[in-house]
Simulated assay, not measured.
Amino acid sequence: MNPNLAKYKISVIIPVYNTEKYIERCIKSILNQTHKNIEIILVDDGSTDNSGEICDFFKNEDSRIIVIHKQNGGAASARNSGLEIASGDYVAFVDSDDWLAEDMYAHLLECCVIQNAEIASMRYFITKEPNAVLPSTKLNIRKYTNDRIYYYLKCSFNAKELELSTCNKLYKRSLFNQLRFPSYQLSEDAYINFLLISKINTLVVSNKYGYFYFKNDASITHTKLTVKSFDLLLVCDQIIDSCRKMDDTSILDLAIAFRCKNCLSLLIRMINSDFDYEESYSKLSDYIAENLTLIMKSPMTRAQKWCCMLLTKSKRLFELAVRCTYQAYKKYR
Rank of each mutant, 00 (worst) to 15 (best):
103 D>A: 01
50 N>P: 01
98 D>A: 01
107 H>S: 12
60 N>L: 04
116 N>S: 08
118 E>C: 06
111 C>V: 00
94 V>P: 01
100 L>N: 10
67 V>K: 02
100 L>H: 14
73 G>A: 13
56 D>G: 12
51 S>Y: 12
88 G>C: 12
67 V>P: 06
60 N>G: 11
72 N>S: 15
66 I>M: 14
65 I>L: 10
63 S>H: 03
39 E>K: 09
121 S>D: 10
73 G>S: 08
84 E>W: 00
61 E>R: 02
112 C>M: 00
87 S>P: 15
64 R>K: 15
101 A>W: 13
69 H>V: 02
49 D>H: 00
119 I>D: 05
72 N>Y: 03
41 I>Y: 03
94 V>F: 12
82 G>H: 01
56 D>P: 05
71 Q>V: 04
101 A>M: 13
40 I>R: 08
119 I>T: 03
38 I>R: 07
104 M>T: 09
57 F>G: 11
59 K>N: 13
52 G>A: 00
73 G>N: 15
89 D>T: 15
58 F>Y: 05
106 A>C: 04
91 V>R: 14
92 A>N: 06
78 A>Y: 01
59 K>D: 10
53 E>A: 13
88 G>N: 11
65 I>M: 09
52 G>H: 02
71 Q>H: 07
36 K>D: 13
111 C>M: 10
66 I>N: 12
114 I>V: 00
49 D>V: 10
87 S>H: 14
111 C>G: 04
48 T>W: 05
106 A>H: 00
113 V>G: 08
47 S>I: 04
78 A>W: 01
84 E>T: 14
58 F>L: 03
81 S>M: 12
112 C>T: 07
71 Q>A: 11
69 H>F: 00
120 A>T: 05
112 C>H: 00
56 D>L: 06
53 E>P: 10
103 D>I: 05
53 E>W: 02
104 M>Q: 10
76 A>I: 04
89 D>W: 11
38 I>G: 11
83 L>V: 15
81 S>N: 14
110 E>L: 00
71 Q>W: 02
120 A>P: 04
35 H>I: 12
107 H>W: 09
65 I>Y: 06
116 N>A: 08
72 N>W: 04
82 G>A: 11
77 S>G: 12
87 S>D: 15
64 R>W: 11
87 S>N: 15
54 I>T: 06
102 E>L: 13
111 C>P: 07
50 N>A: 06
79 R>S: 03
93 F>S: 06
99 W>R: 15
51 S>M: 05
59 K>P: 08
55 C>L: 04
37 N>P: 15
108 L>R: 08
40 I>A: 07
86 A>D: 12
62 D>N: 12
113 V>Q: 04
111 C>F: 02
78 A>N: 02
104 M>P: 02
61 E>D: 14
87 S>Q: 15
96 S>V: 02
34 T>V: 08
100 L>E: 07
104 M>E: 01
80 N>D: 09
83 L>K: 08
60 N>A: 04
102 E>W: 11
61 E>W: 00
78 A>C: 01
95 D>V: 09
70 K>M: 14
61 E>F: 00
76 A>N: 10
47 S>T: 06
113 V>S: 11
77 S>P: 08
102 E>D: 13
85 I>K: 03
88 G>A: 14
96 S>L: 02
52 G>T: 00
106 A>R: 04
63 S>P: 03
